[in-house]
């Protein structure tokens, strides 16, 4: 039997259209979206926006204050800070999206399995997430980074690995409620196999809160990378990661505070953008939905 798609299509917009309508009216969320938009544009087209080469060392121009020539000044190697921040946007975006995707995939996989099958497998997975929650996030990350070579690839995986339990819990809760629906029962009765049933009917109906968590997850991943790089355990020089820029800038706090100030503002604005958008998305999707309200 062919599903009658045309009926749902005509009856006044699905969940996502409704959400977008509500989201458009939320000024804070739109402000967040604008920040994210600017970040993506600047990050992707970094070579077009950056006035200077972010890696070029010019020692005679070191530690210059903000001026018309160098809007945000230069660092201790005479590199243009604005250019480095623009290139740094790429790194933050990469970390945010890759680490958050890893956490999304792992979380959805384990959350779905736990919620759908229940029983001992659910118990094992959930007790494991309990244990993972037992570690303060940054300390756990530091421990992992200590065990492996500190570089950006390790950072992606470490953050993804530390943050999936949150995602798994949300997913599990969703699956538990979705699987009670009649359409799932109907599919089971029709002899639908688990795999297709989960992929076609369960997961699509669990996505709303997961997407909100994903947005918030990007913010916390960016913050985590910045913290690790600040401690010297993340991106290594000369990578223009915002966190490591603050780290190297702090030695010149007295004489050249702009080294520290501007990359920090970039981190804050980016995190703010994702948080505002995530908040708005949550309210627009379902005002009564219970969800984590911030990035760790």
């Amino acid at each position: 039997m062919k599903p009658m798609n045309n009926i749902t299509e005509k009856s006044g917009g699905g969940l996502w259209q409704e959400t977008w309508k509500r989201l458009k009216r939320d000024r804070a969320a739109m402000f967040g979206l604008v920040i994210i938009g600017i970040l993506i544009t600047v990050g992707v087209l970094a070579p077009l926006f950056a006035p200077y080469n972010p890696f070029k060392v010019t020692l005679e121009k070191r530690l210059l204050g903000p001026s018309l020539e160098h809007w945000l000044g230069t660092d201790h190697f005479g590199r243009d800070i604005l250019s480095r921040i623009i290139y740094g946007a790429r790194i933050s975006l990469e970390v945010g999206i890759i680490a958050s995707s890893i956490s999304l995939l792992l979380g959805m996989l384990f959350g779905t399995v736990a919620g759908y099958y229940g029983g001992w497998i659910d118990n094992v997975i959930m007790r494991f997430t309990d244990i993972m929650f037992g570690f303060p996030a940054l300390l756990f990350l530091i421990g992992i980074m200590a065990a492996f070579e500190p570089n950006l690839t390790t950072v992606f995986f470490a953050i993804g690995f530390v943050s999936w339990p949150r995602m798994a819990r949300i997913m599990r809760g969703q699956v538990l409620s979705v699987k009670e629906n009649d359409y799932v029962m109907a599919n089971v009765a029709l002899g639908q196999k688990d795999g297709p049933l989960i992929l076609r009917h369960i997961i699509p109906n669990c996505l709303a809160p997961v997407i909100v968590a994903f947005t918030m997850g990007i913010a916390s991943a960016i913050m985590a990378e910045a913290s690790l790089s600040f401690l010297g355990l993340g991106a290594q020089p000369p990578t223009p990661s915002w966190g490591s820029m603050v780290n190297f800038g702090k030695d010149y706090l007295r004489s050249a505070p702009w080294l520290t100030m501007f990359p920090g503002i970039a981190i804050g604005l980016t995190v703010l953008g994702f948080n505002l958008f995530g908040d708005g998305l949550r309210d627009a999707l379902d005002p009564t939905m219970e969800l984590p309200t911030r990035a760790e």
């Binding site: 913010a219 981190i267 804050g268 604005l269 995190v271 703010l272 948080n275 911030r294």
Partner: peptide, 17 residues
């Protein structure tokens, strides 16, 4: 909102400054 989004280490350095 700013306080939630600002990195801890940056807040610290600005206070020092």
């Amino acid at each position: 909102l700013g306080g939630i989004s600002a990195p801890v280490f940056w807040v610290g350095l600005m206070l020092v400054l």
